[in-house]
Simulated scan of single mutants.
Amino acid sequence: MSVTFKGNAVDLSGNVLNVGDSAPKVELVAGDLSIKSVGGASGKYQIINVVPSLDTGVCAIQTRTFNQRAASLPNAEVFVISLDLPFAQGRFCSTEGIDKVVALSDFRAKVFGQAYGVVLAGSPLEGLLTRAVFVVDPNGKIVHKEIVSEITTEPNYDAALSAVK
């Protein structure tokens, strides 16, 4: 699969996941350097909001929007995942008032990107995660997937939110 970055095609690497597939359970690093898992059955919906870096305008907008719109959903956990260091994620969340979205980093093992098929390959952003949203139901099945076709644009928030019942 490929996406575009400023109109130029960029390939993605990793496993291709589709709606109906089991969401791989992956361990990521939280702001306090503890380990937090996403994917798999958790008893709640999981909105997994994936961004290249919180240090960019569109990624910041995406995270603020999910903080405002999705965090009030009952029976849902909302995550933002990037390769940013947990310290940088913490500063961003503190500065931006992000208090309902859990920031997690794939910096240590870099397994999330491969497990979910969202690693950018062959571009100036090679090695970062592409912009994507996955919604996982309480039983661990993917019920919504959006790999944003142009990395510099926002995802379809309404489609992701409507997947949470």
Results as ranks from 00 to 15, higher is better:
Asp11Tyr: 01
Ile151Gly: 08
Phe92Ala: 10
Asp32Asn: 15
Asn139Lys: 15
Arg64Ile: 08
Glu150Phe: 02
Leu104Met: 14
Ala71Val: 05
Ala60Gln: 07
Ser162Trp: 02
Leu128Ala: 00
Ala103Cys: 14
Thr56Arg: 03
Leu161Pro: 01
Glu146Pro: 06
Gln68Val: 10
Ser162Met: 06
Ser34Pro: 00
Glu126Ala: 02
Ile151Val: 15
Ile81Val: 15
Glu77Cys: 03
Ala163Val: 02
Thr152Lys: 11
Glu96Lys: 12
Ala70Val: 10
Ala160Thr: 13
Phe92Met: 04
Lys44Val: 10
Ile81Cys: 02
Thr4Gln: 13
Thr130Val: 11
Ile81Ala: 05
Ala159Val: 04
Val26Lys: 05
Phe87Arg: 12
Gly127Met: 12
Val51Gly: 05
Gly39Gln: 03
Ile61Lys: 01
Leu125Gln: 03
Leu125Ala: 04
Asn8Gln: 15
Val78His: 05
Leu12Met: 06
Gly31Met: 10
Val118Asp: 00
Glu96Tyr: 02
Asn156Glu: 11
Asp11Gln: 14
Ser2Trp: 02
Asp84Leu: 08
Val58Pro: 10
Pro124Ser: 13
Val50Gln: 07
Asp137Arg: 12
Glu154Gly: 06
Pro86Thr: 05
Lys6Pro: 04
Val26Glu: 09
Ala103Asp: 00
Gly127Arg: 03
Val119Ile: 15
Val10Gly: 06
Asn18Asp: 15
Pro138His: 05
Ala160Glu: 07
Gly31Lys: 12
Asp21Arg: 06
Val136Ala: 06
Lys110Asn: 10
Glu150Tyr: 12
Glu146His: 01
Lys25Asn: 12
Phe112Lys: 07
Ile47Thr: 01
Gln62Tyr: 10
Gln62Phe: 09
Val29Met: 03
Lys110Met: 03
Val118Gln: 09
Tyr157Ile: 08
Ser162Pro: 02
Val111Arg: 02
Phe66Thr: 01
Asn8Met: 14
Leu17Arg: 05
Glu27Gln: 14
Val135Ser: 11
Ser123Met: 11
Cys93Trp: 02
Val38Glu: 05
Ser94Pro: 00
Leu28Ala: 00
Asn18Ile: 12
Lys25Gly: 01
Gly43Phe: 14
Ser22Thr: 13
Ala163Ile: 02
Ala132Gln: 01
Val133Asn: 01
Asp32His: 12
Gly117Pro: 04
Ser13Met: 00
Ala115Pro: 08
Ala71Trp: 08
Thr130Ser: 15
Leu83Arg: 08
Leu125His: 00
Val51Phe: 08
Asn75Glu: 06
Glu96Asn: 02
Ser2Lys: 04
Asp158His: 04
Lys100Phe: 03
Lys100Leu: 01
Val133Leu: 10
Ala103Ser: 14
Val50Pro: 11
Gly31Ser: 10
Pro124Asp: 11
Thr153Asp: 03
Gly140Met: 06
Glu154Cys: 06
Met1Cys: 14
Ala160Asp: 06
Thr56Val: 00
Val78Phe: 00
Thr4Asp: 05
Ala163Gln: 04
Phe5Asn: 08
Phe66Met: 04
Asn18Val: 15
Val135Gln: 13
Pro74Asp: 07
Val19Met: 07
Ala23Lys: 06
Val101Lys: 05
